[in-house]
């Protein structure tokens, strides 16, 4: 029995360490917090198209606080956060804030456009791809949201459905 429990404990810890080492990117904290300026890493650059076909680069937003939201139309928890982001876009835009929604929908604009119209999304949506997901640590779960500071560095990471206040606090601390 004792030996079994020891083995179980070793397996549990080994599994835990393995998971932490292999699948959870270093910069993903278990509880989203705004990192101190010195510990922030540069957000990876990308070139993705918006619904008009225009290529969007993260660098286009340098000098602004950006909420980069990886989402999909089939993601239920994402739909809870979208109205918050719509409100943030309206409320903070004048202070140098933008929301960028990176859709990971396989069906592309055919799925995104009717959804965006129905949800009255007022911010820019771009079509994501696996390469961009990989650059951001491998986006396993949706929603995954990065709050990026005016210098283009990742200030906080929110994996899964997070609290509205968590986002708001992060944004306000950066504006």
């Amino acid at each position: 029995m004792k030996s079994f429990l020891r083995t179980l404990a070793v397996v549990g810890v080994a599994g835990l360490l393995g998971m932490v080492a292999c699948t959870v990117p270093e910069e993903l904290p278990s509880k989203p917090v705004v990192k101190s300026t010195s510990t922030r890493k540069t957000a990876p650059e990308f070139s993705l198209k918006d619904s008009t076909g225009k290529v969007v680069h993260l660098a286009d937003y340098k000098g602004k606080v950006v909420l980069l939201d990886f989402w999909a139309t089939w993601c239920g928890p994402c739909k809870i956060e979208i109205p918050w982001f719509t409100e943030f876009e309206r409320k903070y835009k004048v202070r140098g804030f933008e929301v960028l929604g990176v859709s990971m929908d396989e069906d592309g604009w055919k799925a995104i456009q009717p959804f965006a119209a129905q949800a009255a999304i007022n911010y820019r949506i771009i079509l994501g791809d696996d390469k961009t997901g990989d650059q951001y640590g491998g986006i396993e779960a949706l929603p995954t949201t990065f709050v990026i500071d005016r210098e283009g560095k990742i200030a906080s990471v929110h994996v899964g459905l997070s609290g509205r206040k968590e986002f708001q606090d992060a944004i306000e601390s950066l504006l």
Binding site: K2, L5, R6, L8, A9, G12, V13, G15, L16, M19, V20, T23, V24, E140, A141, V159, G160
Partner: peptide, 19 residues
């Protein structure tokens, strides 16, 4: 050992929730 195993598995389960 029992407590450790339970704690390790609980944390592992929490971590696996993001996978």
């Amino acid at each position: 050992s029992y407590k450790f195993a339970a704690a390790a598995l609980a944390v592992a389960a929490l971590m696996s929730a993001q996978m």
